[in-house]
Design a protein around this nucleic acid. Sequence first.
DNA 1: CGTGGACTTGACTTAACTCAAGATTAGTGG
DNA 2: CCACTAATCTTGAGTTAAGTCAAGTCCACG
Lengths: 275, 275
Amino acid sequence: MDQSIRRRAHPVRPMEHACAPAAAAHEGTFADEWINSRRPGVRRLSFAKARDVVISGSHNRCIYFNHDGWLARYKILHKGSRQILDFVLPGQVFGLPACLFPRAPYSIITITEASVSAIPFDMTDNVFDRDPALAKTLFWSTVQEAAILGEHLTGTGRRSAYERVSHLLLELFVRLNTSHRSGEMTLSIPLTQELIADALGLTAVHVNRTLRALRQDKLIKVDGRSITIVDFEALSRLSDFEKSYLGQAGRFQPRATEPAALGESAARAMEPWGA
Amino acid sequence: MDQSIRRRAHPVRPMEHACAPAAAAHEGTFADEWINSRRPGVRRLSFAKARDVVISGSHNRCIYFNHDGWLARYKILHKGSRQILDFVLPGQVFGLPACLFPRAPYSIITITEASVSAIPFDMTDNVFDRDPALAKTLFWSTVQEAAILGEHLTGTGRRSAYERVSHLLLELFVRLNTSHRSGEMTLSIPLTQELIADALGLTAVHVNRTLRALRQDKLIKVDGRSITIVDFEALSRLSDFEKSYLGQAGRFQPRATEPAALGESAARAMEPWGA
DNA sequence: CGTGGACTTGACTTAACTCAAGATTAGTGG
DNA sequence: CCACTAATCTTGAGTTAAGTCAAGTCCACG
């Protein structure tokens, strides 16, 4: 049966996708404290939906920590088409290349409302010596980013639309850590079909048809902006999904509002360096 | 011929080298000395053409420094198709993810004969403290890799075949530093049309037709394996080429056999950290 | 000097795109 | 809370860029 015409039981608002209730701006989360303890001068910022945080071609003096929103790294070509390189999920660091290169190689836009910490960053003041923990985190996040980009490149280069959409859903599923909640195979994502299309190098129209096909093949269910993975195994097989490229965690911190989890996850993020 | 069979023909010779006894060539170049002075235990290895140096899914205990060959990072999908993520040029470091992840996210194969240095690498022994220079180099090379992957992703996702081929040629031109030699717009590349196709997410047949079109449009000239850029400006414009994503150098070291150049370039590679 | 790899080209197919028009849904102000 | 508007989603019909299949040619090299 066609899931798309089912009425949604619960209206979904953007912030609810974002893994955390919107914290009051001044009410510092644990992540704030952690960051502040190492880097004075950190500012907390709130962005509305669809705001550019980093603009391609410009130079930045901050890197950012995303607390609770979704963002997208993207490029625009002269013909006007957009390629989304990757989505930035809660707990991820972003904006590093805009600091390292004289001109940021891509823009970063908010997909939902987002509150982020802007962390002053200057490579010339020898971060590697002064703050090795930060350096390691940045290193690790860059390594992860490269792995994800490689996987996305493989997708746009060699996978069919059907495979690409499947792969993206599985990737998001794993990165959102939903796996914990055992049987729960439903993910709530704030992505429009157009965003999905731009991430996969397809058109929105074709993503629509592809989702329909996946529904009809009983591999997924769609209910508004929430998607249920019906047959994880089949999707993995058909799309060559192998989650190891996502690393242990896939992100730096699972919940902005769960101090314990942060500590745990930060430790895990550092693990490769024996921290 | 059936493609899946042809693809399977990629020689896969598990290396007995993995940080094992040095194979050959004791005449160390300057690069050797430089690397050795910081990392004892470095071994010089020689690879024939079409040998896998890193195999997807395996774990490594070495990173590699490429002295003089060309290599390609690639993935194979279950249908047998191959996506080349990027080419490794002389002077580049590679193989880091195979050390950091339990399973290497991609394979790396030699395109030409190549002599490389295998550098024992263990994240758990706190490289960041013990050898900050190496850490910085690895960081920088990863940042560069991510930028290049992002550009390639944009290509396969949103550019036409015509644009992709143009863009690749310009990228290689810039990365090979040929720009120095003023008017000289000819580059000699060891790539078959099949390799180009696999890097761009196209078929070899279509790359062939595309090159013909570029020739007919008087944008390039092709003479065997050497290609001349006839109209750099036009190619840049049509393919949205903007070289800044390649960073200053694009690589760590221009020539393994040019000590002076190495020092110069290594310094430039470190520059972002004020080294 | 012949054999396999790389390159060419033609004829045909197809996955994905484009255009277009409705149907739903979400967001806004009154 | 409703009405209005703008996104977003959906589907059909026709187009096209790129793929597939096939049959050569041109070599480099053992």
